[in-house]
Nucleic acid binder design. Structure first.
Length: 149
DNA sequence: CTGCGAGTCAAAC
DNA sequence: GTTTGACTCGCAG
């Protein structure tokens, strides 16, 4: 089941199964393709609330992750523990997992569930760091959460 | 302050 | 086997 919803950061494509959300991606070309679902799912309701600036807890959302390495899973789980409005550094996660900052970045890059897995809350110790959806997007989401000075 | 080198480790080649 | 990062730390200029 695939839905496209409109947000102020562009259209968002969601793929959900009976087991949970499988994939989230930002869609090129803005919100024109957005379709209002007849019956918004729990996840869609949370996402629209989030993009309206609401403090949303995604930790209860059920996930349907496809085959991934155990390392990726550990990094994503660590990222989901970062509270709303706060940030951590790549090095912070690396030390927690006995890994290295670059490896953490690699795992976050392949995150299939932006926002639900808040990879945008992971920043570099020297600056904003990177983001697979574009640094611009990362910055705006952190501002939305009030996590940026 | 800025720039460079080395350390690091999972993934990609 | 080698190279490449969404990094970090330390140390020169």
């Amino acid at each position: 089941m695939i839905h496209v919803i409109a947000t102020k950061f562009g259209a968002l494509e969601l793929e959900e199964t009976e087991r949970g959300v499988r994939r989230i991606s930002f869609v090129e070309g803005g919100a024109s393709r957005a379709v209002a679902p007849a019956k918004p799912t729990n996840l869609e309701a949370k996402l629209s609330k989030y993009f309206q600036g609401g403090r949303v807890d995604f930790s209860t959302v059920s996930l349907d992750l496809q085959e991934v390495s155990s390392f990726q899973r550990r990094v994503w789980e660590a990222a989901m523990k970062i509270p709303y409005g706060e940030v951590r550094t790549y090095g912070w996660i690396a030390r927690k997992l006995n890994s290295s900052p670059r490896a953490v970045g690699q795992a976050l890059k392949s995150n299939p569930l932006p926002i639900v897995i808040p990879c945008h809350r992971v920043v570099s110790s020297q600056g904003i760091g990177g983001y697979s959806g574009g640094i611009n997007l990362k910055t705006r989401m952190l501002k939305l959460e009030g996590a940026l000075r």
